[in-house]
Design a protein around this nucleic acid. Structure first.
Length: 595
RNA sequence: GGACCUGUAGCUUAAUUGGAUAGAGCAUCUGGCUACGGACCAGAAGGUUGGGGGUUCGAGUCCCUUCAGGUUCACCA
């Protein structure tokens, strides 16, 4: 609609003021709630053509639109703002088209679909997942749904950081202190078990460092020469050399971790099309680095470590291979990117990675470009903010890490508590109930995270449980189940809802308000896709639910005597439920039929 | 020290990318069930958008400055 209006206004300016105007001078926005009208033209930019006051210019254009465009039923000018009113008939016609859509994503389809890789999750195999990973996973998965919903070919990838010095730490600790403990013998989830040894390593390592410092060593040297660290470095060397025993242990412990991760992923409702392992890609990275060295793009230090000089790009020197020849993080990422492009020839490769790695991705892109990979332009760092606690970052040292599995469990327990208290599910089996509790709990958690602008840091307060009322996932689910309930009731009353057709004649302002919002769905999804912002959809779903609840409260649907009005309200309700459902689907949030 | 990011009601957060009187939720207070589902609805109160300058018809949004917090610049990942 905005585009149509824009063209009409351009036409108006041309005829009235005999001037061609640029599109960006015609600023159309939705009219604020406090004013009468549907769309608003900001007239200030047009004054240079009208050479008149804002009021007069607005009047003139408004009158022209009213006279020449039958969708425009009226207008008013307040200060420099021309509020354009569209006729109910126009809105109804627009809505009628929604009622016959197969899916409400039809209008979101892009004209030039791209191949897009979305990399998300990217766990380390030395620790279980925590709240930060939850945000990552939910954002990544939702991004996948949104982009593919708009017609792109999206590949969900995960790069598992399964090698490196930190992985060796938990291996060393397990060897020394583990006494052969396994997930089976301990009853612990595999990722948590391995995490336990990582923590154990850090604890003992710290003790060794302190001891050395007390013996007169300076801190840097102590960190370097603590026996545990020495053993770990030796293990990494052995690993890269393919030592059989080390490799066996590595495989075993990683298999425990993967079993644990799979459980958590399943609970979160996320999955992947292709999983990469850095234990594979680091080698490709090494080759790339060595060949770039031959081309003199990189240089070798006297201690034989290999570096890139990025000072011309405003960045620093960057180490790419250690003096002992082993790979670093950046080496792997170079390999992964090249490997992926060979396999998929992607247009875009989106990395869902926290904003603490902004610099890393700047360097990665600059390096690839320097090495001559043109497609590096398509690397996009989807940089999201950290999840913080009221007192700041989560710190493992202080034991303030919010564990993913614990939080998920807690959400579902709370959902059960709330539901049982309300007692609306007495005719369901225990299994069905548990499934509903799960959906409610997860929606509370997922919505809580996804409603926030991804770029911003967000705060999670463990002391306050995540809400189930107000601007929340369960509120939206509740609205949806209410509508479902209306239709169940309608069926009982013998109304054939399948055949209820749209016959929009008598509508009030509240219905029109709802219709306006429903019409905004597709543009909201498109905006979320181009701006990589699932939060827009989350907030839209909330706004729609709120609007519907007001309507529901103020008007009777099935109790309405006039059959035409009743049917219209039924159709309105149906489309609302469909759009809520699709919107939440794009966020990866499941909807129950009852709750 | 260099680079980058953030700062909005007591708390959690919106704001159509420079537009009108900064919008919600939670918490607090008040009202609404003879029900199509009260996980709801209506109302009250709560703001110098960290402070100060500037740019212009117009600034939470852009520029400068200052304060506070954070991230990063590792032979960690």
């Amino acid at each position: 609609m905005e585009i149509v209006l824009k063209d009409r206004i351009k036409e108006a300016v041309k005829i009235i003021y005999n001037s061609e105007v640029n599109d960006d001078l015609i600023q159309i926005q939705e009219t604020k709630k406090d004013f009468k009208g549907d769309f608003t033209l900001v007239v200030f930019p047009l004054l240079r053509f009208s050479k008149n006051t804002p009021e007069k210019t607005g009047e003139t254009i408004g009158q022209y639109l009213k006279d020449n465009f039958n969708a425009v039923s009226g207008f008013n000018v307040i200060k420099g703002f021309l509020n354009i009113e569209l006729s109910d008939a126009w809105w109804l016609e627009y809505f009628r088209k929604l009622t016959v859509e197969e899916t409400h994503l039809e209008k979101c389809q892009v004209s030039n679909p791209e191949t897009i890789l979305v990399e998300y999750s990217s766990p380390n195999t030395n620790k279980p997942l925590h709240l930060g990973h939850i945000r990552n996973n939910l954002l990544g998965y939702s991004l996948y749904r949104i982009l593919s919903g708009c017609g792109h070919r999206v590949v969900k990838t995960n790069i598992v950081n399964d090698r490196g010095i930190h992985i060796c730490k938990s291996m060393v600790a397990w060897q020394k202190f583990g006494n052969g403990e396994t997930p089976e013998s301990s009853g612990m989830k595999g990722d948590h078990l391995v995490g336990k040894y990582y923590v154990l390593f850090e604890k003992n390592y710290k003790i060794q460092i302190e001891k050395l410092i007390n013996e007169g060593m300076d801190e840097a040297e102590a960190k370097n020469s603590a026996p545990l660290m020495k053993e770990t470095r030796e293990m990494l060397l052995k690993w890269e050399a393919g030592d059989k025993e080390v490799f066996g242990l590595w495989k075993l412990m990683n298999s425990w971790v993967y079993a644990g991760f799979d459980e958590t992923y399943k609970k979160l409702g996320v999955d992947f099309d292709k999983i990469y392992y850095e234990s594979d890609t680091y080698k490709i990275g090494k080759d790339i680095v060595l060949s770039a060295l031959n081309k003199k793009i990189l240089y070798r230090n006297e201690d034989s470590s290999i570096w890139a000089d990025l000072t011309q790009d405003g960045l620093d020197q960057k180490l790419l291979l250690r003096s002992d020849g082993t790979a670093v993080y950046m080496t792997q990422d170079l390999g992964t990117a090249v490997d992926r492009h060979n396999e998929y020839k992607f247009d875009k490769n989106i990395y869902v990675v926290g904003n603490e790695q902004n610099y890393h991705f700047q360097v990665l892109k600059a390096l690839l470009k320097r090495m001559g990979y043109k497609w590096a332009e398509g690397l996009i760092h989807f940089s999201y903010g950290m999840v913080e606690l009221p007192e700041g970052r989560m710190k493992s040292r202080e034991g303030t890490i919010v564990d993913a599995d614990d939080l998920i469990k807690e959400m579902q327990l709370t959902a059960r508590e709330v539901s049982l208290e309300l007692g609306k599910l007495s005719d369901f089996s225990d299994e069905e109930k548990e499934d509903i509790f799960r959906k409610i709990g997860m929606s509370a958690l997922k919505y809580y995270i996804l409603k926030v602008d991804p770029k911003k840091n967000m705060t999670f307060n463990p002391a306050e449980s995540i809400d189930f009322n107000g601007n929340t996932g369960p509120f939206i689910q509740y609205t949806y189940t209410r509508i479902k309930s209306v239709f169940r009731k309608a069926k009982q009353m013998g109304i054939n809802t399948e055949q209820v057709l749209f016959s929009g004649t008598k509508t009030g302002p509240k219905e029109i308000e709802l219709i306006k919002l429903l019409c905004k769905f597709s543009e909201t999804v498109s905006a979320a896709a181009t701006g990589y912002t699932p939060a827009l959809i989350a907030n839209y779903c909330y706004e729609l639910s709120r609007e519907y609840n007001q309507f529901y409260h103020d008007f009777s649907i099935l109790g309405e005597a006039d059959e035409g009005v009743r049917n219209f309200r039924l159709v309105l309700s149906r489309v609302t439920s469909e759009i809520i459902n699709e919107g939440m689907w794009l966020l990866g949030i499941e909807m129950p039929e009852r709750m």
